[in-house]
Simulated scan of single mutants.
Amino acid sequence: MGKNGRFGKDYGKVVGKDSPSRPGWKGPGYVKKAEPPAKAKAPVAESTKAASESMIPIELQQLLLNIFRNTFPGVLTSGTLQPLLQDVKAALYERDFSRAFGKQEYLEAYSVRWSPSRALCYSSILVDLQKHMTELNKSTLKVVCFGGGAAEVVAFAEAMANLSMDDKGPEIDLLLVDTAQWGGVVQMLDQALATPPPLSKYASSSAREANSSLIAPGSIVTTFRPDDVLGLSQSQLDDIVGKGPMLLTLLFTLNELYTTSIGKTTAFILNLTSSTKPGTLLLVVDSPGSYSETVVGTEAKRYPMQWLLDHILLGTEKTRGEESAANWLKVFSDDSRWFRLPDGLRYPIPLENMRYQISLYRRL
């Protein structure tokens, strides 16, 4: 993610046993051991338990990690990876997003370090919420990811691979929109997803016959559009959204848009609402807690991001003394969930568990 998918100063720290920022790794080549589930507040809409395990088989989760490992082997083994990651983290801390995502080597370093965890989390969310997507086009699912990059393209492929096991997976038309130049990274990952992984020269004939790509070639058509989300006009959004119901995502993007400009973000959401057709789904995932609060007005009042979003989408604001009509229905919400990486996954560098809030809206 680039300018439209940014992170605060605490982003990227390893999840530890007693504190969200306490390191807790046990070896450089292993994923951190899962922790006991954290208690979550009652969701606003649909009742559910905080997710602690993915519904996706661990074998498929490992294949997802292999996609990143096989796509960027030189990056993962390079002696410059850690200095590059430090540069990116420093730029993110200083909120200098043009610098953090301004070089191809920075994008690749980000992709191997932070995108795998995100992709695993996103794919588990998509599979978990599949029952809400049954009313969308069953032959080709159109998706637009605002602030999307490396994690999103792999996450949708992983979700498709999991659903295809039950012959439920549609083809996907995936559009990623971001200011950072993710096109090259996305193209490499897209190609790796539809290509059988490399095998050792000592692999048996049966292993070679069984070797296959994560998804069938052509099952996902991925397009990257370099654009500033907050700069999109109504006509541009009309062109992006099209004429039918679809899935829209803002994955760890909306809070940073609000931080940039509440006015521009509000205009973007209102224009997006005008562009979308009934039945369209909007999936919003972001950091929970105080990080998702934004300063509003000269008095520096702080409002939760979720409240700001509901204020626009659900018609909670009042006009001339009367409550305005809602344009969206919130069909699912949870203000604190965990995605925990299962034991047994292997990756060359450490990955982290993730805590997030989630909301899913349907256009009325």
Rank of each mutant, 00 (worst) to 15 (best):
Q191F: 02
A194D: 06
T195K: 12
P197C: 01
K201G: 14
K201Q: 13
Y202F: 04
Y202V: 10
A207Q: 12
A207V: 03
A207L: 00
A207W: 02
A210T: 02
A210V: 01
N211D: 10
S213T: 01
S213K: 07
L214N: 07
L214C: 05
L214V: 07
L214G: 05
I215R: 01
G218V: 04
G218I: 07
S219C: 11
S219I: 04
V221I: 11
T222G: 06
T223E: 14
T223N: 14
P226T: 04
P226H: 01
P226D: 00
D227A: 09
D227N: 00
D227T: 04
D228R: 04
D228K: 03
V229C: 08
L230E: 07
L232Q: 07
L232E: 09
L232T: 05
S233K: 02
S235G: 02
L237I: 11
L237H: 11
D239C: 12
D239M: 11
V241A: 11
V241C: 10
G242M: 03
G244K: 15
P245R: 12
P245Y: 10
M246F: 06
M246S: 15
L248E: 03
F252E: 12
L254Y: 13
N255Y: 09
N255T: 15
L257M: 06
L257H: 00
Y258E: 00
I262F: 03
I262E: 08
K264N: 15
T265V: 06
A267C: 07
F268M: 00
N271W: 05
N271D: 15
T273C: 02
S275F: 06
S275Y: 05
G279R: 01
L281W: 05
L281N: 08
L282C: 04
D286P: 01
D286N: 13
G289V: 09
G289P: 12
S290K: 14
Y291P: 09
S292E: 08
T294E: 13
T294Y: 05
V295G: 07
